[in-house]
Design a protein around this nucleic acid. Structure first.
Lengths: 259, 259
DNA sequence: AGAATAGTGTCTTTCAGACACTATTTG
DNA sequence: CAAATAGTGTCTGAAAGACACTATTCT
């Protein structure tokens, strides 16, 4: 079925492209890393960029638009450019959420490109394998991830803000951990993402008192810590989707905001 | 400057259109209202919908894409379809923020349309004047805003979630109020948006103790309440962008979440 | 006068953070 | 044994909610 376009035919304008870009975060060697690709093509050939690409569109013979959802496009591009396939293997617990949409007219010199940015979190993931438009795909410590192509520095900064903030009031930290984890591992995730040390004892009491955050498996680690200490209890992610009470960042509350 | 499209020409696919849709919320007669337009054209002719329309794209003669930002498109469509011009008059304090992007392949039967949804809050606003693609433009109580065109029911529901949540940890409520307001007016905004009654005394103490939320003007209302009571102090919005401590919704914390 | 509202005082409970302490395990 | 870590107990202060109360202004 074809309809008139409300007296407004977008095809009378210059075309728009819609892309998805993925900010995939993980923790490696006690540091937060982001997944980047090296661009093989102009513009920004040779520069590092977030993995991403064009959303595919198609129509049925009768004109009905079909094609992939935005979420599906994000997962497809992630798989194509980096070889990381969500849904099975180490990425079966990958958390994916929409971050925001970036549409400055000149953000891509080729044409008008609107990019829907996604945020993905996962436990320590395998090394990526470049494919598609990517000449290389690597995990980069976030401190070293600067000078990216397009407006990807901005997108990455927004993603980090979002991630740090969501740790406070959602069980997001469990998405960075393996299926069974110790409280010390969760604490390390908070400390790494927030970049602040947390008090072990208070953190332990706090996290165990939030209903639905973590569930005791009844089992413990095989060994204590490498440098001593008792075996730690193992937990699984609980069913809560929001934390009550929240785990607020220390320092984040300015003592007195002038005026 | 023209570049190759990474061996991937989006023009080889069916075209995509990008629209913006605006969820404009305000409080009228102690009830939350959303701004809706009646569609003049197919599809969904005659149905109520969120105001919105196509993002304009253009290129310079040398190929560089120019045109309006997504934010600008949202404000332009709001003005065109409803006659509400932000930036001056009663809408000079309009708060606008991106909500999310909706791209289900079949959300528009005409073609693939990706819609960037915006959330706008303002104090009691004038009656809208229909224009552009809209046959009518009206403020509708949110309870009556159902059966909207496209996926606009979903967008509206997401917008309400976001608005209720942002009241907790941002000074958003002041965006619904006039430049100078009483604490009772702010309380009424919280009660209306959250749909729960709040304790006047505790609310008063809480809101005045959050640094940077509201600033005492030193003046008071000309008259007390219509049914008696002393004159209330007048406040202005403060400079804080985040509330510490937050004003959490009552009830929102489930006492015990099983497992 | 009577009703309604603004704003404050106080008490209890909950939670965050500081700190101390015990128990367990590793090298 | 010494060092490190898991987990708990206790105290203090901040803040939320319940409730009472005073002062002010309206009809």
């Amino acid at each position: 079925m074809e309809y008139a376009m409300d007296g407004y035919d977008p095809r009378a304008f210059d075309p728009v492209a819609v892309t998805v870009d993925i900010v995939a975060l993980t923790i490696r060697d006690a540091a937060l890393h982001v997944l980047l690709v090296e661009r093989a093509e102009m513009p920004y050939a040779g520069r590092l960029a977030l993995p991403g690409g064009f959303v595919r569109t198609r129509r049925d013979p009768d004109g009905t638009p079909v094609g992939e959802t935005l979420d599906a496009a994000a997962l497809r591009e992630l798989a194509e450019e980096t070889g990381l396939h969500a849904g099975h293997g180490p990425l079966r617990r990958l958390h994916l959420e929409q971050l925001g949409t970036y549409g400055e007219p000149a953000r891509d010199p080729r044409m008008r490109v609107i990019s829907v940015a996604y945020l993905a979190f996962g436990p320590a993931m395998p090394d990526p394998v470049a494919g598609g438009d990517a000449a290389a795909a690597i995990w980069v410590p976030i401190d070293a991830a600067t000078g990216l192509a397009f407006d990807h520095d901005t997108i990455l900064a927004d993603a980090l803000d979002r991630a740090r903030s969501k740790l406070e009031y959602t069980p997001l930290a469990t998405a960075f951990a393996r299926p069974e984890f110790t409280i010390a591992e969760i604490r390390a995730i908070y400390e790494t993402v927030w970049g602040v040390p947390l008090h072990a004892g208070n953190f332990h009491r706090k996290i165990t008192s939030v209903p639905g955050f973590i569930v005791d498996t009844g089992t413990s680690t095989e060994r204590g810590g490498d440098r001593g200490g008792p075996r730690a209890r193992l937990y699984r992610a609980g069913s809560a989707r929001l934390l009550h009470p929240a785990l607020l960042r220390p320092e984040s509350s300015p003592k007195r905001a002038g005026s």
